[in-house]
């Protein structure tokens, strides 16, 4: 049972890469997607992302993510269709028209967002959050406090989701029907339940801060980490690949 952004244990190449390399690759990859409007190139990027997910057995998680991103990007795409009168006219609108260019722009947006999101999310699925935070502290010299804040935020996501599940179950047992009447009804029923969730989260984060402090939080330095995160050949290859993709995207945009 794995939740949102939760590490899935494994031993694939992606699992074994240096966390910093993975993070940098994902960020550069995303930037690359926004550097070009070339649909063919973006499709290649998208395919690459899918291939990466397949290589580490995360297709299920990535498909779930793609669905969510698709819903979001579809809204943007529809807006684009109606507001960018480009290319050959297909449908006339009072304020302009929908053309082949509009459809192309919409498709580009969807593919771009999907492609950009995959490696970013994949990073969380194949990297322990502690490795990620420890390595950015050690390699990138990010202050530990920030890394820890980030790590505990992510750590608490499943805890709170679990709480929410428990709360919804308790109410279901009392006859509240979350499963009928669609999403609007569900949200309407869930709003009052945010009170107990809020109460328990405030309580939890408070005691979590204390628990961290009595276990030497303030003593932690960059050297404290037990694990070392040296860069291997594969890490450099991955980073080179990221830079290569970025360069290719910029060239495409400038040349075409």
């Amino acid at each position: 049972m794995n939740g949102f952004l939760e590490y899935v244990p494994g031993d694939s190449l992606l699992h074994r890469l240096n966390p910093v390399a993975k993070l940098l690759f994902a960020i550069v990859f995303a930037i690359t997607c926004f550097c070009t409007g070339n649909l063919v190139f973006l499709c290649c990027m998208f395919a690459l992302g899918i291939a990466m997910a397949a290589s580490c057995g995360m297709m299920k998680q990535v498909l779930g993510l793609m669905k969510a991103v698709f819903v979001f990007s579809l809204i943007l795409a529809i807006l684009l269709v109606f507001t960018t009168p480009q290319g050959e006219m297909l449908v006339e609108l009072p304020w302009g028209y929908i053309g082949t260019g509009s459809l192309l722009a919409a498709a580009t947006t969807i593919v771009r967002l999907e492609a950009a999101a995959i490696p970013l999310f994949l990073t969380f699925y194949v990297t322990k959050i502690s490795d990620l935070s420890n390595s950015v502290v050690k390699v990138l010299h990010v202050p530990y406090k920030y890394a820890f804040t980030f790590a505990s935020t992510v750590h608490f996501i499943p805890v709170f989701m679990n709480d929410m599940k428990g709360i919804m179950e308790a109410q279901t047992a009392r006859g509240i029907e979350f499963d009928v009447g669609g999403i609007v009804n569900k949200v309407r029923l869930m709003v009052p339940l945010c009170v107990p969730l809020l109460v328990s989260s405030v309580r939890k984060t408070n005691s979590a801060a204390i628990a961290a402090e009595v276990r030497g939080f303030n003593l932690r330095t960059r050297e404290s980490g037990y694990k070392q995160y040296p860069f291997s050949g594969a890490d450099f290859v991955v980073l080179a690949l990221a830079v290569g993709l970025l360069a290719a995207a910029i060239c495409l945009t400038v040349l075409l």
Binding site: Y7, S130, S152, H155, R215, G216, L219, S224, Y226
Partner: peptide, 17 residues
Amino acid sequence: VTSIVEDEMLYGLENFG
């Protein structure tokens, strides 16, 4: 405070050096 059993074990040990 962490997400994996091993990391939870490491947390205090690392902090106290």
